[in-house]
Amino acid sequence: MIARPSLPVPLFALAALLALAVPVLTDWAPLDRADHALSEAFRAYGQPRPDLVSALRILTDVAATVPFMAAGLLAAILLAVRCDRPAAVFCATVTVTVPVLWGLAHWLLYNPRPLDGFVVVTSNGFPSGHTSNAVAAALAVVLLTWPRLARTGRLVVVSVATAFALFVSLTRVALLAHWPTDVLGGWLLALTVVPLAAYAARGRIPART
């Protein structure tokens, strides 16, 4: 079983993502200044704290593409073995679609990352791949567990999932791997793809009862 958020959620997220992409890619001055101001604040905080920066470099990669895809495909296989076909299709769709979409965006859209960051990444940065992966994984877990849990369990899962997504998002800005708007774009991409994948999985294959 898969919970499905209200349909306006992914539609609003998609509209917001497209609306955000325009000022980001055209270097709209107010947004550009805000990005630089926040990034420089994190640079000033991180430079005298090399141990913290080193720890964040390790922790941020929990949402890198390889662990994200490995966990997603493993979950899809386990759900298929349990004959929960809609959930398996959902997991597989999210696992493949999210990295493909942000990867295409990095390839097609010119948006350089902050210079002299605490991590060196040469690709374009909009939207943040780590953030997209983290938010997609967190939301997928919530949608998969929601129908199976009581109120307290739902609160715990939502809290942990949200904390995980926010933590990864923060590491990408704190390490100067991305501008804050790249991270916002990652949230919007995941909030578009994951709910639509849930609708597609449940719409094509009847859920078992």
Rank of each mutant, 00 (worst) to 15 (best):
residue 143 L to Y: 07
residue 121 V to P: 11
residue 75 A to Y: 00
residue 78 L to T: 11
residue 137 A to I: 09
residue 57 R to C: 05
residue 124 N to L: 11
residue 140 A to P: 05
residue 118 F to S: 01
residue 119 V to F: 04
residue 135 V to M: 10
residue 78 L to F: 13
residue 74 L to D: 11
residue 151 R to E: 12
residue 110 Y to N: 15
residue 143 L to D: 00
residue 107 W to S: 15
residue 143 L to F: 08
residue 69 M to N: 07
residue 143 L to G: 03
residue 98 V to L: 03
residue 147 P to V: 00
residue 131 T to C: 08
residue 86 P to R: 00
residue 159 S to W: 07
residue 122 T to Y: 14
residue 102 W to I: 00
residue 75 A to E: 07
residue 118 F to H: 06
residue 150 A to H: 14
residue 126 F to P: 10
residue 63 A to P: 04
residue 70 A to Y: 11
residue 144 L to H: 02
residue 72 G to H: 04
residue 100 V to L: 13
residue 84 D to C: 10
residue 88 A to M: 05
residue 90 F to P: 06
residue 61 D to V: 14
residue 56 L to N: 01
residue 135 V to R: 07
residue 134 A to K: 01
residue 112 P to H: 06
residue 78 L to N: 11
residue 59 L to S: 05
residue 133 N to L: 04
residue 142 V to Q: 02
residue 87 A to R: 04
residue 139 L to V: 13
residue 123 S to F: 11
residue 82 R to L: 11
residue 79 L to I: 04
residue 84 D to L: 10
residue 96 V to S: 10
residue 80 A to Y: 00
residue 136 A to V: 02
residue 128 S to Y: 02
residue 104 L to K: 00
residue 76 A to P: 01
residue 91 C to Q: 06
residue 63 A to C: 10
residue 91 C to V: 01
residue 125 G to M: 06
residue 132 S to D: 10
residue 58 I to W: 13
